[in-house]
Design a protein around this nucleic acid. Structure first.
Lengths: 155, 155
DNA sequence: TAGCATTGCATTCCAAGCTATGCAAGTGTT
DNA sequence: AACACTTGCATAGCTTGGAATGCAATGCTA
């Protein structure tokens, strides 16, 4: 059985993700940001005051991963957490002014990474690439969901 | 400035990489393997007795990352490290019988993950997807190399 | 309303990746 | 030969990601 890395989607995706992460990190480090905060920030920039649970529902990330990320973000002055008025278990996440101010430069950095990465592709190829990824992601998420449901029925 | 995650290559690649990693981990955990060992194993299965340096040259991974991975692999009985006869600094990496025996099932697992992930695509779309990734990777590696060279000239 | 199940979050422990640094062994230069 | 430089690897410390677990607050149900 042969395994050719150049023809393995998983291998290439992993490699590509590391290349993107390195690029993004280089560009947002001067802003005092790290890559892991990015997904959470993108959601919060659209509207903060969410609970951790609400954030998780918008990010395909495990709860402990987000909890850790939020802890680092609080330590670094990007967010503050206030107890929910109604539900004493929940904490609502609020952006600091500092985090709000970083929105424009951070997004500019990310968009620049994207455009440089895809610079060798035509407009059509870029669209194709994004569309293919969206379809693969949707399929894999569905598969994962089905597996969870199967386990619940069986177990 | 807008940022739409569905149209961000970096965001989608990161997400996709996590989905692939979860799938692969589920499948190779029963074999006693973890995802991080995979790239090194793929090289070593083609021929072991390499030094760490030679492995790094075949993997776009930083040296400390590989050193850690090899330490875990040695701990788990996948490889042994023997001092090089000529160069006392270098250590040559040898697969154990156990690691050799895992080749077929591990590769089968990875190929299954790939084919399930791409199941919703036509043959042509799969080829396109892989080809696009290869081109983007090549471009980003070239960019990264150029930056290093620029820094050396300047600094 | 008492007891049980669920929910929201934190904590622990691990893998995997990175940067920065250290150090011993080899190489090259004068 | 002495010195500086380079190379090969290890270590420390961090982020990002996950699984497993714990626990308090809430919700449900008999």
């Amino acid at each position: 059985m042969e395994f050719i890395t150049d023809q393995s989607a998983g291998y290439l995706v992993n490699h590509l993700a590391r290349l993107f992460a390195r690029q993004l990190q280089d560009r947002i480090k001067p802003l005092g940001l790290t890559t892991g905060t990015f997904p959470a920030l993108l959601v919060l920039w659209e509207g903060d005051g969410l609970t951790q649970r609400e954030l998780i529902d918008r990010l395909d990330i495990e709860q402990p991963t987000l909890a850790n990320t939020l802890a680092r973000m609080e330590r670094d002055g990007l967010v503050i957490r206030k107890k929910d008025a109604v539900d004493a278990r929940a904490q609502r996440i609020w952006l600091t002014d500092q985090a709000r101010a970083l929105r424009a430069p951070a997004i500019a950095a990310a968009m620049q990474v994207n455009s440089e990465a895809l610079a060798g592709l035509t407009e059509a190829e870029r669209d194709q690439f994004l569309a293919l990824m969206r379809r693969i992601i949707a399929g894999m998420q569905k598969d994962a969901l089905d597996e969870v449901e199967d386990r619940q029925e069986t177990g």
